[in-house]
Amino acid sequence: MTSPSELPISGNSDVVLIRQQVRTVAVEVGLSLVDQTKIVTAASELARNALVYAGGGRVRIEIVHNNVRAGLRLTVSDDGPGIPDIDQALVDGWTTGNGLGLGLSGSRRLVDEFDLRSVPGEGTLITVTKWAR
């Protein structure tokens, strides 16, 4: 397959497409079934957040390598309102919407590397990586 790829997040059906594409690449990278499920779930959470809180965004799906392993990296970005207090947003149960407040904090637990940058008024950029074992 072609890596990296970038997909738009502009509607609910895009979230489904992103989940499918992340699954395909996760299999290609050699992630275990459980790790595939974890990264697909994280992708679903982050893409939905971009849709709900920023009105849309995009996700880059790529295969990465370090010295010993291959991994799958997702970069989810949007040009929305940003997150004023990142520490607070990462607390289990914190929500400004009507969710469970588990999307961000839960996604962080599901991946090996998690990086969240956000500038109020400019947008949010989240990078997550899952390494093959």
Binding site: L33, V34, Q36, T37, K38, T41, E45, D92, L100, L102, S105, G106, S107, R109, L110
Partner: peptide, 11 residues
């Protein structure tokens, strides 16, 4: 795999 992921997600 879904059960494991759900628990780790915190649900």
């Amino acid at each position: 795999a879904v059960a494991i992921t759900l628990v780790e997600l915190g649900l």
